[in-house]
């Protein structure tokens, strides 16, 4: 069994204690996913596992065997052009130090997919009402699993809104 990361297959580490995050960072040269707390309390390590946002620090690499992992390195187009959400983060200054940024971006991509399929959130007023209204408050709640210590939150929310609005117009 192999782990597919951004379309490329990687071997499952022999030591099953290795987290998906450490496999990416220390054994695969993919250091875009960040280690912040290593215990599920900051979101910096967020990646997409079979399209769902998860914490790679609490996922054993071996649990990802046979699955597709998408990391920040797999977000931009292959020819190097930035993903529109990445560009929106730059446009709205949705980061300062840049350390939580890959996790924020991967988390936002997962979040938008959850939203699209109608998943409610803690702040959704009507649980049975289908897709919730896309609001600042919805984004904030759904992104609360990603800490940012520089305080770029306003820019992050604005970037996500810009990207989502552009998508809605397509």
């Amino acid at each position: 069994m192999r782990i597919t990361v951004n379309g490329t297959d990687y071997p499952v580490p022999d030591d099953v204690r290795v987290s998906l995050l450490d496999m990416l960072r220390e054994r695969s040269g993919l250091t875009g996913s960040k280690l912040g707390c290593n215990q599920g309390a900051c979101g910096a390590c967020t990646v997409l596992l079979d399209g769902e946002r998860v914490l790679s620090c609490l996922t054993l690499a071996v649990q990802a065997a046979g699955r597709e992992v998408r990391t920040i390195e797999g977000v931009a187009a292959a020819e190097g052009e930035l993903h529109p959400l990445q560009q929106a983060f730059i446009d709205h200054d949705g980061f300062q130090c840049g350390y939580c940024t890959p996790g924020q971006i991967c988390s936002a991509l997962g979040m938008l997919e959850e939203f699209r399929r109608g998943d409610p959130s803690h702040v959704t007023a009507d649980l049975a009402g289908g897709q919730a209204r896309f609001s600042h408050e919805e984004i904030r709640e759904r992104m609360s699993g990603n800490l940012c210590r520089c305080g770029a939150h306003n820019g992050i929310v604005a970037a996500i809104l810009q990207f989502a609005d552009a998508g809605a117009g397509e």
């Binding site: 960072r25 875009g32 960040k34 920040i72 390195e73 990445q86 730059i90 980061f95 840049g98 350390y99």
Partner: peptide
């Protein structure tokens, strides 16, 4: 002015201290 290092940071390409590759590394 947008940040010069913006593209690197949003790609996860900005290299932080624990991300410098090195042969024979001990943890």
């Amino acid at each position: 002015q947008p940040r010069i290092d913006g593209p690197d940071k949003v790609r996860g390409g900005a290299r932080f201290a624990a991300e410098v590759p090195m042969d024979g590394l001990l943890y």
